[in-house]
Design a protein around this nucleic acid. Sequence first.
DNA 1: AATGCCGGGAC
DNA 2: GTCCCGGCATT
Length: 526
Amino acid sequence: MLMKDASRASTSEPNRREEVDSGKLVTWGNSEARERLSLGAEEQPGFSAQATAERSGPDRQRPPMRETPGLGPCPLMLHSPPTASSCDRFLHLLLTKEKEKTDSGKEKSAAPVIQSLKRWQRSLFRKSSEELDMDKVTAAMVLTSLSTSPLVRSPPVRQNGEVRLPGVRDWVLTLCLCERTEGLSGSWKEGGGVPSSTSSSGYWSWSAPSDQSNPSTPSPPLSADSFKPFRSPAPPDDGIDEAEASNLLFDEPIPRKRKLLPIPSLLQLLELSTAHCSGEHRQAVRDVRELQWEWLGCRNSMKVMFKCLWKNCGKVLSTAVGIQKHIRTIHLGRVGESDYSDGEEDFYYTEIKLNTDSVADGLSSLAPVSPSQSLASPPTFPIPDSSRTETPCAKTETKLMTPLSRSAPTTLYLVHTDHAYQATPPVNIPGSAKFTPNGSNFSISWQSPPVTFTGIPVSPTHSHPVGTGEQRQHTHTVLSSPPRGTVSLRKPRGEGKKCRKVYGMENRDMWCTACRWKKACQRFID
DNA sequence: AATGCCGGGAC
DNA sequence: GTCCCGGCATT
Ligand SMILES: [Zn+2]
């Protein structure tokens, strides 16, 4: 019945049995997050009990991998402009993923990623009581975002031999352009209560992709009543109840505004979840991550880099540990232990993709930033300085207000730069939240992930993007054509850096699955 | 010494 | 099926 879980329990990880495994939370040392929404939650048994990770003792030599320090890294925001091709691509991705599962197994109709998320959410309900309210909300948000996908709610239709995906484009667009609802920040900051799933708390509003804006294709029946009141106890579960995922947790009459959690942001949320140690959660994170990765199609010829988001520092390094260290020492001023991160750095850098060509050109002219003055102000936040019309560094202390509402979202993605990393996009997208069990109350800080564009060539040559499984042996590299015989089985050993090197041992969670298993990397293929 | 990953082994 | 590691080739 429920025994299947027991076999998990990885080596050093606290077996996440049924307990509310003490999620390891990180305390922000001094630094106050920019927008810090302090929920006046007097005491939240669950959370305070969870602050077990308090010990930051002088023990520096902790086992590098294993035991991911605190919250997992969360810099994988891959925002892409919602171009037509990217939408299509994304859908195709979901589709194929889905088919994948179907072929080998039974027939599930919901996308596996969403399944995974649902599983996680269910696990939350199973856990005892209130303590996980936060996570429940998070789960709901995350899940909702994904499950509002027309793809999930209404299957693709065939039309003139082509597979039509009703409403999908709108959906993706919505996803990308979404912003955090006023309602959320508003009620969270003032409420004085934990955003529980029940009442006067933060809500994420969403919307169906513009209802009938597209007459040509049948829009999915995404009406307001799709979102039903929240049912508290765990549903009968085990039945892969599809089309049910989004019905959880929200009892507010659907808000007017139509906004959605962007996938990148939801990923961050996911990763910041309290129940970070649960198996379901981990799985969900991985799945979403994977989806993201594939979404942008950063396959070949895309070089992954990491960019520092600190105010005037646009440093770009090629390894995760690189910027982590950079941020830690240069910006956070933690010179002493340049090792061991509490996870805070993860908010100040982002992962970007560059086209291999432009890299050489770009790197040389990189880091035009004045190296000085960076370390100066401790709590200066890497607010991706918005539209240029803004006074530089005016220290517009953005109180916890809607970080996004000040810019017109529609035009945001029209920005185009060859060197995306140079120009900080004027976009603020609701980003991550971090819980801080700060004594008797905790707070949440929001931060806006950056937007990164990569001129994805979208070469029409390959309308068959998948085939991850079987595709190798591209041996057209040789010109000299050695006469004959001797099947020199010298494997050239791919050139590019693989997950291990890019992310480093301490970020093993970010590796692709294959790399984690010491198999041939599937993310950076040669 | 570090990295990539095949083969093989546990559950 | 998922997950991990010894060990070796490669750098
Ligand atoms: Zn990899």
